[in-house]
Design a protein around this nucleic acid. Structure first.
Lengths: 143, 143
DNA sequence: AACATTTTAATAATCTTTATTATTTATTTT
DNA sequence: AAAATAAATAATAAAGATTATTAAAATGTT
């Protein structure tokens, strides 16, 4: 999570200009833990930035990903999700309501080492996805 | 990996008819470890089944997934990949050449338990993806 | 072998994402 | 501070993957 000032610095350091749209997309993403899709981001920004186009949202998240201030998630849905938290953590999605939650304190470093040894790859990143039924939906079942 | 006979039985048991196309799609998938996309499958089948359409490939993999004889992979590319090996294993993709390899002997059961406790979810499945540079591309770098 | 039903293939449609281009905005230079 | 230049935005179109539709063909059953 970066301040606007920090994000501006990173953008400039990578040769990108600082624009209100870029700051707004990042802020919208940093303000939520819901791992929104491009469409959700667009809807969120609509009230404040009624002139912003879909293409701008897509271009912006592409840039934010390229300068490593956000992560792109792919849970197998038809659209991507975005996450402003770039720390190493994993995700779990509810098969029923579709929500995506963070899984913070699962230590994956052992598995990464193991994977590196087994594969001979030089591993640069990893994404773990778990799927199941969230507590909320489980409770709903009991009624 | 199922024989044609076994697959036929599973199809029938689930109320699906057995057709040459379905057997062919499964066989093409079972014959490779390259985790092909729908397009790759289509191209592979083209010579033997010149009349088969793209829609048939998509419908077929959808059915094969629904009866749990294949798995759908999602590495974040623009298209899905398919895997006839439904045993629990994980995948690693090369950031340079794009190939997707199996990671067989990485034990993830501990992490799944941990994730279940932390999240309160009832976990039904999981997919781990690692990304990096494959041995082949690493070697190419040295030249 | 004929029937009822499902599947296939072809096509069109849908949806997400990317490309294009004129206009606008941010930065640099004067 | 104003002008010049370089890049970004918005609008639109285009591309690409996947899904829906429907007439024709194949399957399993009687």
């Amino acid at each position: 999570m970066l301040t606007s000032q920090q994000l501006s610095d990173v953008l400039r350091a990578n040769g990108y200009k600082v624009t209100p749209q870029r700051l707004a997309v990042y802020e919208a993403l940093a303000a939520t833990k819901s791992h929104p899709t491009a469409e959700m981001l667009f809807s969120t920004l609509q009230p404040k930035y009624p002139s912003m186009s879909f293409a701008t949202v897509y271009k912006t998240v592409e840039i934010l990903d390229r300068i490593h201030v956000i992560k792109i998630l792919n849970t197998g849905e038809d659209s991507m999700r975005y996450d402003a938290d770039t720390s190493i953590h994993h995700h779990i999605q509810c098969n029923e309501c579709g929500r995506v939650d963070d899984l913070m304190d699962v230590d994956s470093s052992g598995l990464v080492k193991e994977a590196e040894n087994l594969s001979g790859y030089d591993i640069a990143g990893h994404q773990f996805y778990f799927f199941g039924v969230c507590p909320h939906c489980r409770k709903a079942h009991q009624n």
